[in-house]
């Protein structure tokens, strides 16, 4: 059996990669995909702890995270389509109306 720490380390690495992508990339869709990587890293950690504690609750949380991720993807991508229609760009640095 693979020790739990292995999965935790992988989860941390994937989360770090995802957060790096969110900071580094300026394309709204790519940033979105990096957020999905971060969500998956958290899911991996939850399942690893679920196995480690021998309780199924962690897996239930993963199901809820997936549902919320699906809802978030639907609304977020609708926003991106709308943004592209209005501004003609997906560069988040150019969309700065609400920034001070």
């Amino acid at each position: 059996m693979v020790p739990t720490s292995h999965y935790l380390i992988l989860g941390a690495i994937l989360f770090a990669i995802g957060s790096f992508g969110v900071i580094f990339r300026r394309n709204a869709i790519t940033m979105f995909m990096c957020v999905e990587i971060m969500l998956n890293a958290v899911n991996l950690t939850l399942v690893a702890y679920s196995r480690s504690f021998n309780q199924v609750d962690g897996q239930i949380f993963v199901i809820f995270v997936m549902v919320v991720a699906a809802a978030e993807a639907a609304v977020g991508l609708a926003l991106i389509v709308l943004l592209n229609k209005r501004r003609g760009t997906l560069d988040v640095d150019q969309i700065d109306t609400m920034r001070w």
Binding site: F24, R25, R26, N27, I80, N84, G88, L90, D91, D93
Partner: peptide
């Protein structure tokens, strides 16, 4: 989204 329109900005 039309990729020809250069809307896919890259990295900084």
């Amino acid at each position: 989204l039309d990729p020809q329109k250069e809307i896919f900005v890259g990295r900084k």
